[in-house]
Design a protein around this nucleic acid. Structure first.
Length: 274
DNA sequence: AGCATTACCCGCACGC
DNA sequence: TGCGTGCGGGTAATGC
């Protein structure tokens, strides 16, 4: 369940631990069990286990939707794609959709579970090449509204697919893009080249507010994948097709943009040319 | 040529 | 039972 707020929530939970679960930081990997070889992107599934054994987790980082475990040597990178999740547990038999399990010397396990098998894991000496193509981090304050507006106008693309393009901006997915466009009062099909600077500033502010709200609610839990977050109770448009807009009372509509379901309020988010 | 859009694909679970 | 859908993204084809 990964967009930026969900990945960030997972990062924080794993890093902080809890009263009953230790932090992932400082754990040393004793060995690894690969249940589904397709989940291992690098190195080959055969050498992954041997290479990761003995490594210690030093810190947890996030870049866009990538979760990065910094090790004493190299990095272990996860991309959860559509249905991946990571959990600490103490023993127990693997469940049906568990794809990878790291056993630590402490006796605790980190399990990567992923029903749809789209997620990937990389063990690399240098994470740079994997992250190189990502656009700026939306919550990074060094991303100025001026630079953002300039980047928007460098393209002539529909806002929805552009914002979801990880090369343009790192971290937004289908849910948070719809919610951010609603807050910004911008139509998802509006061409990025037509945005005024005021609209660009509104959009970046809306993106940041939406992501922060998502993180503060520990992300969203929808479909059959449970994450522990409750931002789904605060959606304005996503999965609210046919319901009333909380701002104007008009009916929320759903269209298809770039193969993705897209929810918006046609009154609050009018399509204005130029 | 280069950019933008569309189609399709990849497992699986779920709702209608 | 069958079919459409989906918190993602890569690749290939098509369009402008």
């Amino acid at each position: 369940m990964p967009e930026l707020p969900e990945v960030e929530t997972i990062r924080r939970v794993l890093a902080a631990g809890s009263a009953t679960v230790p932090s992932l930081t400082g754990q040393t990997i004793q060995n690894a069990e690969v249940f589904w070889q397709g989940s291992i992107a690098n190195p080959t599934a055969g050498s992954f286990s041997a290479s990761v054994a003995g490594r210690e987790v030093r810190a947890l980082d996030r870049r866009g939707k990538f979760l990065i475990l910094n090790l004493d040597q190299g990095s272990l990178i996860f991309h959860l794609r559509m249905s991946g999740d990571l959990r600490m547990s103490l023993g127990g038999a693997p469940a049906a959709h568990d794809r990878l399990r790291l056993h630590f010397r402490s006796g605790w396990d980190l399990t990567f579970t992923d029903p749809r098998k789209f997620g990937r894991v990389w063990l690399v000496s240098d994470p740079t090449p994997i992250l190189a193509g990502l656009g700026p981090e939306p919550l990074d304050e060094s991303l100025s509204t001026e630079a953002f507006g300039e980047r928007l106008r460098q393209h002539s693309r529909q806002l929805k697919p552009l914002l979801m393009d990880q090369h343009f901006l790192a971290g937004l997915g289908n849910i948070y893009t719809d919610e951010a466009l609603f807050l910004a009062r911008l139509h998802p099909l509006r061409l990025s080249s037509t945005l005024s600077q005021a609209e660009a500033e509104r959009l970046l502010a809306a993106i940041r507010q939406t992501l922060r709200d998502g993180i503060s609610h520990n992300g969203s839990s929808i479909d059959w994948v449970y994450r522990g977050g409750n931002f789904q109770n605060h959606f304005n448009v996503y999965q609210r097709t046919g319901q009333v807009c909380p701002v104007c009372g008009h009916t929320i509509e759903k269209i298809r943009v770039g193969q993705r379901g897209t929810h918006f309020c046609p009154v609050c988010q009018p399509y204005m040319k130029d």
